[in-house]
Design a protein around this nucleic acid. Structure first.
Lengths: 141, 141
DNA sequence: GCAGAAAATTAGAATCATTCCGAATTGTAT
DNA sequence: ATACAATTCGGAATGATTCTAATTTTCTGC
């Protein structure tokens, strides 16, 4: 039994996801994102992850987040030029940014809706990624 | 007749749009954007605008673009964390980023489509702004 | 298990789009 | 004309992100 096995056992997260070796740091960051609905920034992840990994560096947080994004384990979400946020929800969905509170809500498509049905795309287009972001306010919650 | 009048006369652009005084710099930048379908970045605008305004500063380009955006005269478009791009098309539309060539194409909605018809928004939401961006490739043009 | 290779992590420096600052210029109103 | 406000300007500052080089950890073949 390798130390990698032990890490995985303790975390309940497999040793590898989508071909990415889940090191301790990647596991903890992934676990943190799964437990948060708040779409944290890299810096927010960095501050919160220190509870479980006091010696982690910001560079590693960026490295891990990038690795997780590139292996389609999490998604990176950008609002205008604000710091990137990270999201463990892989379903096709958009993001609503409530300006009053600063919170971000996932927005699902209504059932049966296909993006390509509603957009007038140039012919022969292969779409790799779609990002839908909405800004506004929750009038009275 | 003020110098402002003269500027406007020569450019064919009104002295004021949406409550924003159209200075020489703002006019030239607006005119440049109207003539380009290329969604240039601030720096690209800066380089091209020097032909008509050799002494303009990059700070002014940023100032003008921001003023034009805030007065809803142009739109700011962001792809991931790349430099912002600017677009004179005010119709509700999305942007397709062709990874092969780096070019950006406006994407219209099919007629009769309303964003709120297809998204499952939280109740009592007031949407101020929508951004739809697509990444992919033009298979064979 | 062990040597060597490969991958991951780290701290700090570097990058680069954008914003800020203070001074100078231009425009507007009286 | 004179004063007050808005705009422009060059350069410095900011801040998220990326890069670099060194160290540590993990993996592979014996």
């Amino acid at each position: 039994m390798t130390s990698q096995d032990l890490i995985s056992q303790a975390n309940g997260i497999p040793e590898e996801i989508n071909g990415l070796r889940m090191t301790r740091q990647r596991q903890e960051i992934y676990k943190l994102l799964m437990g948060e609905r708040s779409h944290p920034t890299a810096n927010e992840v960095f501050m919160r992850i220190k509870e479980s990994l006091p010696n982690i560096s910001l560079a590693t947080v960026y490295n891990c987040l990038e690795a997780l994004v590139q292996h389609h384990i999490i998604r990176q979400v950008n609002f205008d030029r604000e710091p990137s946020r990270y999201c463990p929800n892989l379903d096709e969905h958009g993001h609503f940014h409530d300006e009053a509170t600063g919170t971000i809500h996932d927005v699902k498509f209504k059932p049966g809706i296909n993006l390509t049905d509603i957009l007038d795309l140039p012919p022969h287009t292969v779409i790799k990624d779609v990002e839908i972001t909405l800004r506004g306010q929750l009038a009275f919650s």
